[in-house]
Design a protein around this nucleic acid. Structure first.
Lengths: 213, 213
DNA sequence: TGATAATTTGACCGGTTGGTAAACATTACA
DNA sequence: TGTAATGTTTACCAACCGGTCAAATTATCA
């Protein structure tokens, strides 16, 4: 029988497992570098090392690949924010949130760019997720930040814009990597750059959120 | 004669002037929303209100339109940074730089997204400009910031990462607009949001750069 | 081992896309 | 006003793209 993947029963073959992983890896590579429209199925197939019809045997459409990737990324992407602990020390929590986000930008730049591509072009596939689960999570954590400010543990500030600022500054190193490299030059291209960025951002946010008169 | 636009003599017709403007306006709309690959010439022609061959009479290729736009944007985009004055008051200079960048994100979001799309996908058309003119300008201004830090007027910090942080936080409101809107909700959608962002960012950077023991 | 299900491939299809050719229309200007 | 240059349109093309199909190959397991 030649049932499409989605319609098959629970049990997944070893080959299915492997090939789907292979495909998603290739799709991530291609989508993140070219956007949804800019990526071609042939290209993904080539990177995945298989023929196009073979690829389409596992994912019936280009959209299906993309959705599968987006869902996976969206979920793990928010882990650092979920880890934000209301009971912890505010400054330490913010500091570690920044560092974790920055590590993700360093270790998973393709995932960041996949997401950036999507949002930049109006987030046609994920508006609902943004307005639903994402907003809900941010609302919740914003309340935590607000309570810290109220208790005088950090400066009074708009928690939403604080979160946006952390997102944008950290993801910048993945999404605008080419620009960052171009401006900084070849020297200091590896771990040093990451540490410089981490140090700067931590001081910026910790200093900027210090309670002042 | 039917010479292509680029090969014509100096003098440009009134019609050329008008139509090229019309086309670039349409191209900006379409490119910024869909990326280079995602945009189609037909789409641009429709938005510009003319037939595709007519459009291609003014810009011989899709690339030519894109390049023309990118060149224009790249130039005006750096104006705020050029205005950075070594002689001015450091805190005031940084504050006004942030505000100006944020105003650009508000007033020219399409230009910001055009640029973001380009860089996100590896900046294939503008790597040279990034490594050349852009790097040079940033190097120059970084030196100014470093001198301020040395003179004890602001906290010691990596000037490059400071500039990246200002770029990313401000442009975020143009590039990730959909996400920002989704998280903040409909209420407070207009000028208020802009003012909130401006106030937050100014305090963040001014506070973060304050000289401390 | 053999039969059945799962996997892989080459050939192909209809729609879209960037771009062209050439005829037609309009404008500028002597 | 006449005419040459400029501007516009219709019809079209070759390449590409997402996806299908049926036949061939390989894996699974009774």
């Amino acid at each position: 029988m030649v049932l499409p993947r989605a319609a098959r029963t629970q049990r997944r073959t070893r080959i299915q497992e492997e090939k789907e992983e292979q495909i998603l890896e290739a799709a991530l590579e291609v989508f993140s570098a070219n956007g949804f429209r800019g990526a071609t199925v042939d290209q993904i197939a080539e990177v995945a090392g298989m023929s196009k019809p073979n690829l389409l045997y596992y994912f019936r459409t280009k959209e299906a690949m993309h959705r599968s990737l987006i869902d996976r990324v969206l979920d793990t992407w928010l882990d650092p924010l979920r880890a934000f602990d209301a009971e912890g020390n505010p400054v330490a929590e913010i500091r570690s949130y920044i560092r974790r986000k920055l590590e993700m930008a360093r270790d998973f730049p393709r995932e960041s760019r996949l997401f950036a591509n999507e949002v930049l072009q109006g987030a046609p596939h994920i508006v609902d997720e943004l307005k639903g689960p994402l907003k809900q999570l941010v609302d919740e954590k914003a309340e935590v930040i607000r309570s810290w400010a109220k208790a005088g543990k950090i400066a009074k500030c708009d928690p939403y814009h604080l979160i946006f600022a952390i997102w944008s500054t950290t993801q910048h190193y993945a999404d605008f990597d080419v620009q960052v490299r171009a401006v900084l030059g070849q020297e200091n291209d590896g771990e040093g750059r990451f540490e410089d960025a981490a140090r700067f951002l931590e001081e910026l946010f910790v200093g900027g959120l210090q309670v002042r008169e």
